[in-house]
């Protein structure tokens, strides 16, 4: 090998651009996950208290989303929506696809939480004549969501790690930027390794946070006995 295989000067040269790109990655993660939380909750509620046809449809949609590649879903949203007159820019399509895909996963987490609320809580709400929506919002969800938080946190990390996929529809997030830098200089090793380290670092930090959260919830659940 004629050239040194790790070039620090080149690292310093590409770092600012990668830092800028990481902002896009973080934005996609945050908005994608916010969407996933909402979609997941809607799926879970529809599946739990919706009429029969809605339940079956939701189960079907969640199953299809979970068993097919995010990449195909991304293409469908990005290339197919324009045919229905709805042209999405790459970032919006990407966030939608991430939100939908992980919403399907989150709905399973919410579902476990909802099913963990004892039946007596529903019955007490009926006996107090609370309307269904109030029952859901004030009685059931406050008990169903706290135990679901660590599992939701794990999906936040998983979604974050999948954002590089948005590079295929040319969102200028970390991976796409690294590839562009690599193709300009014919040196891929530094940018791609830096991207890998970036993800590794934040995933490890996030995983540690989720574990800490799990421990705290495990201890602090004294309030929610029975």
């Amino acid at each position: 090998m004629s050239e040194s295989f790790w070039d620090w000067a080149y690292v310093w040269q590409v770092l600012p651009e990668l830092v800028d790109a990481s902002v896009v990655t973080v934005k996609a993660t945050v908005s994608g996950f916010a969407l996933a939380l909402i979609i997941g909750l809607a799926f879970a509620i529809a599946r739990m208290i919706g009429p029969g046809w809605l339940r079956q449809t939701t189960i079907g949609i969640v199953e299809v989303i979970r068993s097919t590649p995010l990449l195909i879903q991304l293409f469908l949203l990005y290339y197919v929506m324009p045919e229905f007159g709805l042209t999405l820019d790459a970032m919006t399509a990407g966030v939608l696809a991430l939100g939908l895909h992980y919403g399907a996963y989150c709905s399973e987490v919410y579902r476990a939480g909802l099913e963990g609320v004892p039946k007596g809580q529903w019955e007490a709400a009926v006996a107090l004549n609370l309307p269904p929506w109030v029952t859901m919002k004030r009685i059931i969800l406050p008990q169903a969501i706290p135990p679901a938080v660590p599992a939701l946190g794990n999906y936040l990390v998983a979604l974050f790690k999948e954002t590089p996929l948005l590079s295929v529809i040319a969102v200028l997030e970390l991976m796409q930027t690294a590839k562009l830098l690599g193709s300009e200089s014919f040196r891929y090793i530094e940018p791609i390794t830096l991207v890998g380290l970036f993800f590794l670092f934040f995933s490890l930090v996030a995983a540690a946070l989720v574990r800490a959260l799990e421990r705290r919830l495990g201890r602090g659940s004294g309030r929610v006995a029975r």
């Binding site: 295989f5 999948e162 590089p164 991976m175 891929y188 791609i192 995933s203």
Partner: peptide, 24 residues
Amino acid sequence: IETFRGTSALVQLFWLFFVLPHFG
């Protein structure tokens, strides 16, 4: 375990595809 769980499959794929040739 932590390296492969901490980064995504796409990053790993690209790393092996683009970076390994640098090591010959």
